[in-house]
Amino acid sequence: MTAIWSREVKSYFHTPVGYVYMGVFLALSGVLFDVQILQQRSSDLPTLIGQMSYLWMLLCPVLTMRLMAEEKQNHTDQLLLSSPASLPGIVVGKYMAAVTVQLLTVLLSTVLAGIVWMYGRIYPMELLTAYLGLILQGFAFIALDLLMASLAFSQVTAFLMAFGANLLLWMLDMVSGSVSGPLASVISFVSLYVRNEPFLMGQMSFASILFDLAMAALFLVLTVYGMDRKRRRGAHL
């Protein structure tokens, strides 16, 4: 698993994917920072971080789209499947690589918080819980998008399917306000955005932590299950 993780992390930076992902995330975060903090003369970082979390919808598919399709394209899926690494080991190795790049990106984005800290006032615990929410939400999105990528045959379809799934989650969240009754409760329960709200309010919500991690674990289990079914049919990864 560590061999796969390390190869995938290096591969993000041997190809433009890692740089594009980081560059776009940081550039868009910079725009949000300008609009939300500089122009408003505000130091409300949790709100900024809440807005940054919407970037996962677009950018997590960039991280995950190549993870499975590239193996098929290079025929390296057979190398992995005939190695002593287990299927869950392969999936977790790839997932952890995407998570590593995501964490590095979030780490780089803390420069924005540093600027506010230099010229204004920040509340460290509030900031930390907001970042924790952003990271955990990213974990769940990456797992969902990896599941989508495992179902696709090419990088383009992997991106489109993952983006579509993310968009669907966001749209569900949007319509939750216009429906009532049990359906609204179900949508609120499964919404990754609603689950992020306590973190943005500075609350360390263990229910939300558990939910995000459980969602990530569920999507990873489904990815392993789907890949195993494909393997049994002789389609490899």
Binding site: R7, T15, N74, H75, Q78
Partner: peptide
């Protein structure tokens, strides 16, 4: 040790 019909290579390495 397995060599599939197409050599399984990571082209960027």
């Amino acid at each position: 040790g397995f060599l599939p019909e197409e050599p399984p290579l990571y082209n960027e390495m």
